[in-house]
Structure formats: structure tokens, C-alpha cells
Nucleic acid binder design. Structure first.
Length: 424
DNA sequence: GGTACTCACCTTAGCTGC
DNA sequence: GACCGCAGCTAAGGTGAG
């Protein structure tokens, strides 16, 4: 049975949300993202894109390319709440929604066609509703599968060129039977799963378009990019993509990482950052109602060289205290003297938490009696959750996170696009 | 020279138990 | 006891997405 899949992608989402409260900036080059020297761009208005500014670009580069642009710091919480409103619109046409990010989602509207008309009609309905209710623009791709719908929504977008911005068609449909005519002329890097590394490997085989890729036999492709990836790309090149729209995707890992405004050079400094990050990860694990057995430490040095070290513990943990205990030996094995610019903590291998009393809890390293047991840490951190839910995330936190300027608590998206210029 | 954050998935290699 | 094949787990790194 032919499916009807929509891919809805908000146009310059973060910037567009900002323009609703700053209408004076409409029509100007506006950029949202990290404001510090180590920040990156999250979104650029189409007027800014005319100057070559695009998302994920270092903020410093963007300032050089477009010095007269207005740079805004970004408000992750606001974008999250607007995104929820956008999703309400999606729910008015189908319950089968797979969010990909705050600003895009797949919708399986196969079962909605009898009610609302064909895929293109539903796409226009979504666009109109989003505009009427939220004063935001979006582009919609309509196709028989997810990856074609995604490519189609891209084709529906406005285009920024140095000489001006041209509005896109808003809705593009790839009809059944026309998949290969649409797909094969596209550059191979348009495919989902072809990033810089894969592109370079494919270029060595003379592959520049999706059509070229389709002509490559699967065994060659597998030899070039690996088995799973190779088979997947071969399928995509023939427009085959049976992946369903997944409504309830299970989270498999929870993590936080932070780039520092200035490099850290001592274990003492890194320990304090580890506690802050572990606190944030643990709070999210508890909110998620789970514990984790595998914890990963990520360290990026001043020269951008990055290492990861992981440990798997016998019983699942969900307290910052437990996570710090698990990761501290790994941190101690790292030499911070060259300078550390980023530290990350992530938790995976989810399992029901079983933090309970053990002999280690009762004894300290020097044979003395420990001041608190794992069970007491669990209770203390749950109390912290309760205080935070009532008075806000910054109401309470680990003592080592207190600075002269107050408590520095890690929040999801709180430093999404890099450190501010002078946060410490 | 500059390069964020979060998450998912893959590959390779080593180890362990059967 | 040594070795093999296999499965399962873990660790580390890489790639890609948005």
C-alpha cells in the first residue's frame, strides 16, 4: 500500500520566532546562536544567508561575512514551547507524528486522506494553520516515504542568493512513479547519511549524483563505506525506504557537554565541572524514571583532539554522586595540562536504578566511616528535584557549582550554541 | 586560523564464557 | 590443556543529523 508521508520543516525557525517579538527586524539579516568567540550559529534569516551565513558556522566567521547582521543569543525554552504549539497543529491532521527536532517532523497522513483530501491538500492545510495560528512559515514535502518527503521539503524552501531571496513553492510533492526522476539528478550529498567523510569516499568512485550512486553495485558500495551504511545507501539511491513514522521513539542515552569560555588546566577545575554535568544528567535520568549502567566521559583538548572513556557499573545509577564516583577515576587518568576546552558526561544502557547500601558506602578510602550512604544520596537528590520543580533549576545545586556569581547549574539547551563571552 | 550541543548508530577490537 | 568458533558484552572512535 502506498503511504502518504509529509515532512514539515519550519523556515528559519529560531529567527522567525525571534522576529515575532522583534518585528522591527523583519527583512534584515538576523542571526541566532552563540554570542561568544567559541559559539556557533543556530539559525540565520534568509537575508543573512545571502551573505553566506548558515547554521553551524562559527559565530566569528558569521560576523566577518555579515558584520551588519543583528546577532541574538537564542532562547531554547521559548523555541521549545513554540514547537509544542506547532505540534498541536500537526495533531489536528494526524496522530502519527515523528518529531525530528524542534523545527521539523514527519507526519504519516495515509489515514487522513479521506478526511482532508490528498497529501498536497493536507500539506497546504498544515502550512495555512501554522501561519494563521502562529505567524510562522514552513515548507512541506509530500512523498511515499520519509526520505523522499524530506528531500521534497528542502525543494520547497525559499532560496537565498547574493542578489536576493526568492520564495520557494512551499509544498513539493514526489508522486508515486516519479521518485527516480526526482531523485537521480540530485547531488549525492543530498542523501540522508552522506556527510563529509562518506562524500569523500564516494567521490573517489566518481559518484557525484544519486544517479551515479544507483549505478554502483552494492558490493562496491559496501566495500567503500561499510556493510550497514552501504546497503542502506544503495536502497536509498533506488528510492527504497520502508522505515515507518515512529511515534514513540525510545530515548537511549542522556548526556550533557559544555565548551568552556576558557580552557581548564587542573583536575580540581575539571572535577567541579564533572559534578555540575553529572548533576544535570542524574536529574534527567530521575525525571525519565530510569537509571543507567554505562557512563561516558568526553574530553576535548585545546587542540580539538577528543577522547572518550566509558565505564559500565554492575547496578544502574541515577544520582550525581554515583555518576561522579564512577567517572572520577577516568577523569584522573586524563592529563589536563595541555588545556581542556570541553567536558561531557553521558549515560546509556538504561536499567531500573538499584542504588542501595553497599560496603563501599559505609567505608571511606582511608577506612573511616562515610558521611552518607548511596540511599541517603538518592534521597537528598530527590529532595533537590522537588525543590527545583517548585523554585526553579537554579534554586539548589552541588556546592562545588557555586561561584562568586552564584550557582552555575547545567540545563538542557542552556548553553546550546557555545559559551557566552564572559560567563565566569 | 576557527569549529556547539544532543542523540543515534556503526565499526573495530578485545575480552569472556561456552 | 590447547585450540576453535561463536555469541555477547564492552570500550573507543567515527559519522551524521539537526
Amino acid at each position: 500500500m502506498t503511504r502518504t508521508i509529509l515532512h514539515v520543516d519550519m523556515d528559519a525557525f529560531y529567527v522567525s520566532v525571534e522576529l515575532r517579538r522583534r518585528p522591527d527586524l523583519v527583512g534584515q539579516p538576523v542571526v541566532v546562536g552563540g554570542t561568544g568567540s567559541r559559539g556557533v550559529i543556530a539559525a540565520a534569516s534568509y537575508e543573512a544567508r545571502r551573505f553566506g551565513v548558515f547554521s553551524a558556522m562559527p559565530s566569528a566567521t558569521a560576523r566577518r561575512l555579515c558584520p551588519h547582521a543583528v546577532f541574538l543569543p537564542g532562547d531554547h525554552d521559548l523555541y521549545g514551547s513554540v514547537s509544542a504549539e506547532v505540534h498541536e497543529v500537526f495533531h489536528s491532521v494526524t496522530p502519527f507524528i515523528e518529531p525530528l527536532a524542534l523545527d521539523e517532523a514527519f507526519l504519516d497522513v495515509t489515514g487522513s486522506v479521506r478526511l482532508f483530501g490528498d497529501g498536497v491538500a493536507i500539506a497546504h492545510r498544515v502550512r495555512d494553520l501554522v501561519w494563521d495560528r502562529l505567524q510562522l512559515r514552513c515548507s512541506v514535502g509530500v512523498a511515499p516515504n520519509k526520505f523522499l518527503a524530506k528531500l521534497a521539503s528542502k525543494a520547497a524552501k525559499p532560496v537565498a542568493r547574493p542578489d536576493g531571496v526568492s520564495p520557494g513553492p512551499g509544498v513539493v510533492e514526489v508522486r508515486p512513479g516519479e521518485e527516480l526522476a526526482f531523485l537521480h539528478p540530485l547531488p549525492v550529498k543530498a542523501l540522508w547519511g552522506v556527510g563529509p567523510a562518506t562524500l569523500e569516499r564516494l567521490t573517489r568512485f566518481g559518484v557525484t549524483t544519486v544517479g551515479d550512486l544507483a549505478q554502483l553495485d552494492e558490493a562496491t558500495l559496501v566495500a567503500a563505506v561499510g556493510s550497514a551504511h552501504g546497503r542502506h545507501l544503495h536502497q536509498l539511491s533506488w528510492a527504497i525506504d520502508d522505515r515507518p513514522v515512529e511515534v514513540d521513539r525510545e530515548t537511549k542515552s542522556i548526556g550533557h557537554e559544555e565548551t568552556f569560555a576558557t580552557d581548564r588546566h587542573t583536575h580540581d577545575e575539571l572535577h567541579r565541572e564533572l559534578v555540575r554535568l553529572a548533576d544535570a544528567v542524574a536529574a534527567r535520568l530521575r525525571a525519565h524514571g530510569t537509571g543507567a549502567r554505562t557512563f561516558q566521559l568526553k574530553v576535548r583538548f585545546a587542540g580539538f583532539h577528543t577522547i572518550t572513556r566509558a565505564v559500565t557499573v554492575p547496578a544502574a545509577l541515577q544520582t550525581a554522586h554515583g555518576i561522579v564516583q564512577a567517572l572520577e577515576p577516568l577523569l584522573q587518568a586524563v592529563d589536563p595540562s595541555p588545556g581542556v576546552r570541553l567536558l561531557g558526561v553521558s549515560a546509556s544502557n538504561f536499567a531500573e536504578s538499584a542504588e542501595q547500601l553497599s560496603m563501599d558506602d559505609l567505608l571511606t578510602g582511608d577506612g573511616g566511616v562515610a558521611s552518607a550512604t548511596a540511599g541517603e544520596w538518592q534521597a537528598a537528590e530527590e529532595t533537590m528535584d522537588a525543590i527545583r520543580s517548585r523554585f526553579g533549576r537554579s534554586a539548589i545545586g552541588p556546592a562545588s557549582a557555586v561561584t562568586r556569581d552564584g550557582l552555575r547549574v547545567v540545563r538542557k539547551g542552556g548553553q546550546q550554541w557555545g559559551p557566552d563571552e564572559h560567563p565566569e
